[in-house]
């Protein structure tokens, strides 16, 4: 290819450049890592949501996925390990007009940050939480995570992990998330739709992305080639929308169930906070049914 032709090709900016800190590219993610694709889907979803860009913030913790916040040209906060959700909680509550996206890895969100995750879901804080699950701690070289499949090798489980992983989607749903979906990094259209829906949903929305980490996870588990790894996830994925996420545990020998599992409504923390403090709901246990409350709680 001639130099002249190359020059011509790079003259036009990439359509995602308007939301990228292009002066920071190339990003740190390895060749074949799925985080870049997930990031691209997040940017597309942000544009599709039509929420004014000044009103969107991205908050992340530590780890490979945590670096997303550093590349997006929006108000963006790269916080401490595991604390993206509580930081985002403060950000959202102090600026309720804003739309806050949390991007985080499996270890950051559900190991060190697990307690914050379950409580933010319980309170139904209006956040969009995007978890890129690559089944290990990629940035530190591939250690065992709460998502590492039973028996999979990591640097801290060199023979195989003796632990059972979480089913993140089931956990989110059990804690009260109003929107729960899971896709692989190859389901780009469905993933983008899910992120857009999650952003527009008032309340705690959770989108899990199964993403290849060829450098750390794939290499130790005999799928070193990025393409093979992304295909492995995609080929084993089975779309089953609206099923109970309890039934969607990841089974690498058979099916990786993906889909939109939960899409429901529940008053957010701020809705309830305002109503209660305006004394519009009366006293417990005979609360006014202005906020939908499960039958069990009312009947005592």
């Amino acid at each position: 290819m001639s130099a002249q032709r190359r020059k011509k090709k790079t003259s036009q900016p990439h359509p995602q450049d308007e939301l990228l800190r292009t002066d920071r590219l190339p990003h740190i993610w390895c060749p074949g890592c799925g985080i870049g694709t997930a990031f691209s889907c997040v940017i597309t979803a942000i544009k599709k949501s039509e929420i004014p860009l000044d009103d969107i913030a991205m908050v992340s913790g530590i780890g490979c996925t945590g670096r997303m916040a550093g590349y997006i040209k929006l108000d963006s906060f790269h916080t401490t390990h595991g604390r993206a959700i509580p930081f985002a909680t403060g950000l959202k509550l102090a600026h309720p007009e804003g739309s806050v996206i949390v991007t985080s890895g499996d270890g950051d969100l559900l190991a060190i940050g697990g307690n914050h995750f379950i409580h933010a879901a319980r309170r139904n804080i209006d956040l969009t939480v995007i978890c890129v699950n690559n089944f290990n701690y990629g940035m530190t070289g591939g250690q065992q995570a709460p998502s590492t499949p039973f028996g999979a090798k990591t640097t801290t489980s060199p023979i195989g992990s003796p632990e059972q992983p979480f089913n993140f989607c089931a956990l989110a749903a059990a804690c009260g998330a109003v929107y729960v979906a899971r896709w692989t990094a190859l389901h780009i259209r469905r993933l983008t739709v899910s992120i857009t829906e999650a952003m527009k949903k008032p309340g705690f929305s959770f989108v899990e992305i199964l993403s290849p980490c060829p450098t750390s996870f794939g290499r130790r588990n005999r799928i070193r080639n990025p393409l093979e790894l992304v295909q492995f996830y995609h080929e084993r994925s089975v779309i089953r929308n609206n099923i109970d996420p309890q039934e969607a545990a990841l089974d690498f020998n058979n099916n990786l169930v993906v889909g939109k599992f939960v899409d429901t409504e529940r008053p957010t923390f701020l809705d309830s906070y305002r109503l209660i403090n305006r004394r519009e709901l009366g006293d417990w246990p005979a609360l006014e049914p202005k906020v939908p409350i499960p039958d069990k709680q009312v009947s005592g």
């Binding site: 908050v59 906060f77 916080t79 401490t80 595991g82 604390r83 959700i85 509580p86 930081f87 985002a88 909680t89 403060g90 950000l91 959202k92 509550l93 102090a94 600026h95 804003g98 307690n115 914050h116 409580h119 923390f269 906070y273």
Partner: peptide, 26 residues
């Protein structure tokens, strides 16, 4: 204003920083 009781002090301090960046004195 907003009062929120967090799940622990790690979260409380993180939320205070978030609240401050959200424009509130926290």
């Amino acid at each position: 204003g907003i009062y929120i009781q967090m799940e622990d002090e790690l979260a409380a301090m993180a939320a205070v920083l978030g609240g401050s960046w959200g424009g509130a004195k926290a």
